[in-house]
Amino acid sequence: MGTSTRLIQRRIKSVTNTKKITKAMELVAASKMRKAVSSVLASRPYAEAAWRAIREMAKVTSTELHPLLQTKPGADRILVLLFSSDRGLCGGFNSQMMRGLTKFIDDLGENLTADFITVGRKGQNMIRRRGCNITASFTDLSAHPVVTDIRPMAKLAIDDFTSEKYGAVYLAFTDYVSALVQKPNISQLLPITRIEGLGEVSEALAGIDKAESDVNESLNIGAREYLFEPSPQDVLNVMLPRLVEAQIYQAMLETSAAEHSARMVAMRSATDAATEMIDSLTLSYNRARQAGITAEIAEISSGKSALESNR
């Protein structure tokens, strides 16, 4: 019963404590993930309804003329909104995103440089280490993102895009596919060409031709044209930035759900590893204890036989 059993016992105790922590983190991450996933679903109807209204508008006004829909061929810079986590201990979540981003930047070619707006401390550090330009950085948002958090980002992106500082704006976020699978995703935000999950803008604009025949048809059955107040252009001017906001918000929620699920999985495997370690430590502890007992018995019996032979 020497130092070795005591050492093993101490290790078992410390691993047990670590296991308690990882288990708690797993449970916290799981509940945060559920919350984030339900927020993602709750934010869907807004984007869908806004999109439908824009389709309607495309029939009566020239949506192509809006600055947020136009490509800017002259610009040599692009802006990337990078979503990452504030904290670590979430497995390969951030490095996965970074790998995707590196590939994306390499594919851009020489004559395009990327500036960044980062959300989350990890992304900020990674971009800084790469030596890229960060125009703005936001932290401590991922716990419970609300729309007001993303308004400043949307404003920055829209203002810099319309002032032709950037040729395009991209969203780099992690898609929550399932609790086990998260996929880094980089998609174009501006100019608006397609809306995530809702389809291509060109499709909606192509609806114009079809709409005209619809109008002719509907004239017979009573006009069902939408009335726009104050004017279609005004409504569009306010609607499009909101659609951009809704998309950024959605990306943020997806990232948050993905982060929490990545952390949950990482913490679960840490808990499993701890359990395994405790098992093997307990085994060697028992072995050491048994060895100690055997040695003691051997000592006693050999001592006894020595006494007997002396008599």
């Binding site: 209204a53 309607e56 508008m57 069902r224 044209e225 939408y226 009335l227 726009f228 107040e229 104050p230 005004d234 409504v235 306010v238």
Partner: peptide
Amino acid sequence: PTQAGEITVLPGHIPLVSS
């Protein structure tokens, strides 16, 4: 409350988009 003033929408209203 719309930009153009307060309106009341009743059944049978024409299709409308308003800020």
